[in-house]
């Protein structure tokens, strides 16, 4: 299967462990990622906070390149990127005036035709049979709290994926691979997202609530599908522990890490050894 691929800035920056994990996991499934030529940043929170026109135009340029190069489907593993791309795509597809205006601004014809998908959707599309065929190891020792955060499902009328209040798509995939996901309360609460740099107190407080609730419900790790969630819950976990005087010590995996481990990939192939909170033998156990 060939699919368009929009990495976004985080996956080519400090979240390159996520790109490594996605590439290794999907590669094992036979999914070929074709990176979008000369893609530009989606604008993220800065654009939608400060300039509403730019918040459509920056994703529109990428959508236009995807259409020009014939991608019917494009994976954006970062939910910030995918949400911005989908939002722009729906607005452009629904409004001929906006379509003309954006085509003029981004200097390429854009119609909002490319379907932008997240990592979970690519795994769903591959299908449980393909996952089980590739599986060489049951994930029995993993009791993950599947954390969706905000932008995989919200706003629901735009993203049209899973249930905005009680999503279960990651649990379904991991359960099939032998893991025992826990029921918990914070799977759609915000971790503080892109405020890590300018408002750290917010990030530490919101992330502390998430980590605490996961631990209270018996999770031995968290699973995410977002680079920003991973930064706040993994890289910042030591700061959370210092700020609140607690020990969480909860490894945070990308969804592709656990699926990759089930396929028999090594920690180092998936980039798990580059996380901040050590997997403490959880990942290598049972091999």
């Amino acid at each position: 299967m060939n699919i368009g691929y929009y990495p976004g800035c985080a996956l080519h920056g400090s979240s390159n462990d996520y790109e490594q994990s996605v590439r290794a996991c999907l590669g094992a499934l036979g999914v070929q990622l074709c990176e979008l030529d000369d893609w530009i940043c989606c604008g993220a929170t800065a654009a939608h906070s400060l300039n509403h026109k730019l918040a459509v135009a920056l994703p529109a340029r990428n959508l236009a390149i995807a259409e020009r190069d014939g991608f019917a489907e494009m994976l954006a593993p970062c939910p910030m990127c995918s949400a911005q791309l989908i939002k722009a795509s729906r607005a452009i597809a629904a409004d001929s005036k906006l379509r003309d205006e954006m085509s003029d601004i981004v200097e390429l014809k854009v119609q909002g035709r490319t379907q932008v998908v997240n990592l979970i959707q690519v795994l769903q599309k591959a299908g449980s049979e393909a996952l089980r065929t590739k599986q060489v190891r049951a994930l029995t020792e993993f009791k993950p709290a599947c954390y969706y955060g905000c932008l995989l499902t919200r706003p629901p009328e735009t993203l049209r994926f899973d249930d905005a209040e009680h999503p279960t798509s990651m649990e379904t995939i991991l359960r099939e691979l032998g893991a025992a996901p826990v029921e918990w309360n914070y799977k759609t609460e915000c971790c503080g997202a892109g405020m890590t740099m300018c408002n750290e107190q917010t990030v530490l407080e919101l992330s502390h609530r998430i980590l605490s609730d996961a631990a209270a419900h018996g999770a031995n790790c968290l699973v995410v599908a977002c680079p920003m969630c991973h930064v706040n819950l993994d890289m910042k976990q030591a700061d959370v522990e210092r700020r609140f005087g607690v020990v969480h010590n909860l490894p945070v995996f990308y969804l592709s890490d656990l699926v990759g481990l089930a396929f028999g990939l090594q920690e180092s192939e998936l980039g798990i050894d580059r996380h901040f909170v050590a997997a403490s033998g959880l990942a290598s156990r049972g091999q």
């Binding site: 905000c150 706003p155 209040e165 759609t188 609460e189 917010t202």
Partner: peptide, 11 residues
């Protein structure tokens, strides 16, 4: 400026 754009309110 404290808003984290989590979209819960709109949802």
């Amino acid at each position: 400026w404290l808003c984290v754009s989590c979209q819960t309110c709109s949802t």
